[in-house]
Design a protein around this nucleic acid. Structure first.
Length: 717
DNA sequence: CTAAAATTCCTTTTT
DNA sequence: GGAATTTTAG
């Protein structure tokens, strides 16, 4: 635990708490500071001590400090740690993610930009729905232009800070032209709904700062000291945001590691960190290379992999920790065997090494891999938890209730209104809705106001009018109710008044039962949130729900094994780590295999995963993996081959019957190709191989450097 | 209008 | 193989 020495000394910290470099990083003042912090080098400690030092030794007021972290969880953790160093006064500083910091600023200032301060934040699904409605409004074929793809495209346009009116202007690509058209309608519709998407949160703040220099000035004065964590993963708007805010006082401290940049696909630009010294020529650069987390062997193995990357700043991590065990590499027949291997190894660790379940994590490249793992955990009765992005809030029943809350908070939010208008079903179907929408479009009314006007709409039958009327009354009652009651009571009122809960209870199925539990969990979220922050307004709660992700709820004391994607693993650490699916095509993912830049990012992802482990690291590879129902054979991931043998221990695996599994062998014509990598032919294989025959398409990519991509599994005996 | 059946896409990673 | 959406039958 950290101890703080009393005031009046130059250094307020016990010297043994920090190493030389760390202390420099904590104490440096007077110019921008870049901390290149290798994995496990204690950067969180440096950041918290630095904040504490600002407050304690330099008389900086907590509210003058803005610290940006990557997740809400990291923010909360850092906050607690600073509080333990300097006391409750630290509560007044702002530690938040980019998105929540911006949301906070916008709640105060957004009216200057013509939005209401009651704006809602749309998640990806909401955006997609809105884009869908843009497509149909402009009469485009949804098969030809996928809303998902358009959303991704528009999001990257936004991340490159390209405005709708200039997007696709001199593009000959028809997709880009359509995207640009959709983009501007989408943006306008967002505004009509008083809604912002994730990207807008950043963009509008920048916009605000550009148009109103006095507002920028106000925040520059307010946030005199700015700290940014995970700087290698910032994108252009985030970079601009920081640059503007820090522009005046230049008390900027950024921390990052170019080897851990894994978000370029969402616009993160690693150059932000590599060129920090260009942006701030007087910047001080401090490297942290001593690792406190992992064994030397894990570090060497991970370092060997990442050293294959060409574009990186060379660095070598070292540690005083013991060398530890070798990295265990295990080859298994398929994903089921992979899961049961992991489960039995977890049991062994728990018994022989007194490991707790919470000491163990299993990582995978894509969410789909979690299924087989989950099945094995359930089968063997091992408590586990899957951290799946935002899954809880994506469940239909949760989104339904949230949609009610959103409409109650801001009746202009027509996307949410459309979601609940017939949930639970109250006889207002698609036809009725489209008539009302048409009326709303013609008169320029908001959807809710159009509903209130139902009597005026000729095309509506008497039945429909009555149904609409009672729905509008229901909403008005709920809005009235919300003025005098807390969020938790409001949620319960929604359940009962709408009959939502009664309907679920009447269903008496397992699914309905679990939905009821989920709804009760939502109530718990409200209560927990209140315990943490005091009184909760509807607005606070909706914002929290929009920006939170499940990793934020991660609790290290609880006794369960953690399952998550490699991306979610960033910033966490576990004594024992299993990385699954070490196969070409899966990890590195096939979609990243054409471009060496993408491969390098995959390699960094591998590095991130490996360096999460403190004591034990397992890498698993299946000979065959089923994908969309068909099973494919796969070659070992190149990352496995990049680890020198000296750091590796190969584990053999035998199935329940004790038959040892062998690598694949494929017959093509007269040629038998044994397991191989590096050379050969790229093959697309059709057929399942069950009948011993498959058809093979040769898809040659170049002549020399070819390899076997997928092949049917054939066991040797 | 609803419920069941058929069809389609999916799977990279997320604030 | 399965969720999610769209089509069809009642």
């Amino acid at each position: 635990m950290a101890k703080v020495r009393d005031k009046n000394t130059d250094s307020i910290f016990w010297e043994w708490e920090l190493n030389e470099r760390q202390r420099e990083a904590v104490e440096h003042m007077g110019s921008p500071l870049l901390i290149l912090a290798g994995a496990g080098s204690g950067k969180t400690r440096v950041l918290t001590y630095r904040i504490a030092n600002l407050i304690k030794s330099h008389g900086i007021k907590p509210w003058e400090i803005l610290a940006i972290t990557f997740t809400n969880k990291a923010a909360l953790e850092m906050r607690d740690r600073v509080i333990s160093l300097v006391g409750p006064t630290a509560k007044e500083m702002i530690i938040a993610t980019f998105h929540s910091a911006c949301a906070r600023i916008l709640r105060k200032e957004i009216e200057k930009l013509g939005y209401s301060s009651r704006f809602v934040i749309y998640d990806e699904a909401d955006s997609i729905r809105l884009i869908t409605s843009c497509l149909s409004e402009l009469g485009y074929d949804m098969r030809q232009y996928h809303p998902r793809g358009l959303r991704a495209h528009i999001s990257s346009l936004k991340n490159e800070m390209i405005d709708p009116d200039v997007a696709g202007i001199n593009s000959s690509n028809p997709f880009e032209k359509v995207a640009a058209e959709i983009y501007s309608l989408y943006q306008q519709k967002l505004k009509d709904n008083d809604a912002l998407d994730f990207d807008d949160l950043l963009l509008l703040v920048i916009n605000l700062f550009e148009i109103y220099p006095d507002v920028l000035k106000k925040y520059q004065e307010r946030f005199r000291h700015i700290l940014v964590d995970e700087y290698q993963d910032t994108n252009m708007p985030q970079y601009m945001f920081i640059k503007m805010l820090a522009g005046e006082h230049r008390n900027l401290c950024v921390v990052g590691d170019d080897d851990q940049g894994i978000y370029s696909w969402r616009g993160a630009d690693i150059r932000n960190i590599l060129e920090f010294e260009k942006d701030y020529p007087d910047a001080r650069v401090i490297k942290l290379e001593q690792n406190y987390r992992s064994t030397q062997t894990i570090l060497d193995a991970a370092g060997a992999v990442v050293s294959y990357n060409r574009s990186r700043k060379p660095k070598v991590l070292w540690t005083k920790n013991p060398p530890g065990d070798r990295v265990k590499v295990c080859v298994v027949p398929d994903e089921r065997a992979e899961a049961s291997f992991i489960v039995s190894e977890i049991k062994r660790l728990a018994e022989n090494h007194k490991a707790r379940y919470s000491d163990i994590a299993v990582f995978y490249r894509v969410h789909a891999q979690s299924r087989s793992l989950e099945e094995a955990m359930v089968r063997e009765g091992i408590p586990y938890r899957i951290f799946a992005g935002v899954k809880f809030y994506e469940r239909a029943e949760i989104k339904d209730i949230i949609a009610y809350l959103r409409v109650i908070h801001n009746p202009r939010d027509s996307i949410s209104l459309k979601r609940i208008i017939n949930v639970p079903s109250r006889g207002i179907g698609l036809k009725t809705l489209s008539v009302v929408e048409e009326y709303a479009g013609r008169t320029g009314l908001y959807l809710l106001d159009a509903l209130k006007d139902a009597d005026e709409i000729q095309a509506l039958g008497r039945m429909a009018k009555n149904k609409i009327k009672s729905f509008v009354e229901l909403l008005e009652d709920l809005i009235t109710f919300s003025r005098e009651h807390g969020v938790d009571e409001l949620i319960e009122e929604i359940w009962t008044r709408t009959g939502y809960m009664a309907e679920l209870e009447a269903e008496k199925t397992v699914e309905a039962e679990s939905r009821i539990l989920n709804l009760k969990e939502l109530l718990n979220v409200v209560v927990d949130f209140r315990d943490q922050y005091g009184a909760v307004t509807l607005e606070d709660f909706l914002e929290r729900v929009a920006l939170v992700n499940e990793i934020d709820d991660y609790d290290e004391k609880a006794g369960y094994v953690s399952l998550m994607t490699l991306h979610n693993a960033k910033g966490l650490e576990f004594p024992y780590v299993f990385i699954t699916g070490m196969e070409e095509g899966l990890f590195p993912h096939s979609r990243s295999m054409e471009d060496s830049k993408d491969i390098e990012e995959e390699r960094r992802l591998c590095y991130v995963g490996m360096t999460r482990a403190k004591k034990g690291l397992y890498l698993l590879r299946a000979l065959s993996r089923s994908y969309r129902g068909i099973s494919f054979s796969a070659m070992p991931s190149r990352f496995l081959l990049e680890i020198p043998d000296a750091f590796v221990e190969e584990l053999s695996w035998s199935d329940e019957r004790g038959i040892e599994q062998h690598p694949l062998e494929v017959e093509i014509g007269d040629t038998v190709i044994h397991e191989m990598w590096g050379e050969g032919v790229v093959l697309e294989v059709r057929g399942d191989g069950d009948d011993g025959e498959v058809s093979v398409d040769f898809e040659t990519v170049g002549v020399k450097n070819l390899m076997l991509k997928y092949a049917p599994l054939k066991k040797l005996t």
